[in-house]
Design a protein around this nucleic acid. Structure first.
Lengths: 105, 105
DNA sequence: GCAGTATTTCCAGGCTTATCGAATTATGCC
DNA sequence: GGCATAATTCGATAAGCCTGGAAATACTGC
């Protein structure tokens, strides 16, 4: 994970609407959620949602799988863990801040 | 930590330049770093850097302390931990992805 | 193939951001 | 007060983002 990629992912999550979309997908768990359901739950117009989903897909934070006419969206846990890990490493590499102290021990 | 605040912080870090600034400050540790030194290390024009620092200050990710004519900047570990915690919780709340499994146990 | 549903792409307007040179403010020193 | 250094604010430009209605595309089932 380099700086630019991390920045891209952070930027993707750095928008209230997209963060809500992502949060919704995370809470949906492994089953994922069709685009239409996200749209319905958050009350976002389809085209707007589609743009945001593109952004999340592009950065790898979300994956999609077609099931008949609907597209199932899922939060990518590996991507999220990669990002959290990057932040935690940057934060704790040279300073004792405790966040990942358990892992280090 | 609500969605909008988290999004603001993520957006603040979601820019290559600002992430580099933040990274530099984290690596500087408790001692912090004067604005001028950041500027010198990263080769950013003063005014540009100042704007980015304002953004990081505004979201609470960075703090400043005056020492004579120089301003010492420091990464705020509590803020960072809050953000990482928010992401980790969102990620792991309803799904087993392992990142904070140690804490839960 | 046609009808119907799900989703995306096209297009456009308004808004915010990123950048940085020049001028200004803040602070210390003599 | 006057000078020097540190950093910010001003001003302006170019670029990219967010939004959402309308049209187009994907896919299924009959």
């Amino acid at each position: 994970m380099n700086v630019e990629q991390a920045a891209k992912q952070l930027e993707a999550l750095g928008n209230t609407t997209r963060l809500q979309v992502y949060r919704t997908l995370v809470r949906a768990g492994e089953a994922g959620l069709p685009v239409g359901q996200i749209q319905e739950r958050l009350g976002i117009p389809p085209s707007t949602l589609s743009h945001h989903l593109q952004r999340l897909l592009l950065t790898g934070l979300v994956t999609q799988e077609r099931q008949a006419t609907t597209l199932i969206c899922r939060a990518s846990y590996p991507a999220m863990n990669g990002l959290i890990g990057y932040l935690a490493d940057e934060c704790c590499a040279d300073a004792g801040c405790g966040t990942r102290a358990e892992n280090a021990a």
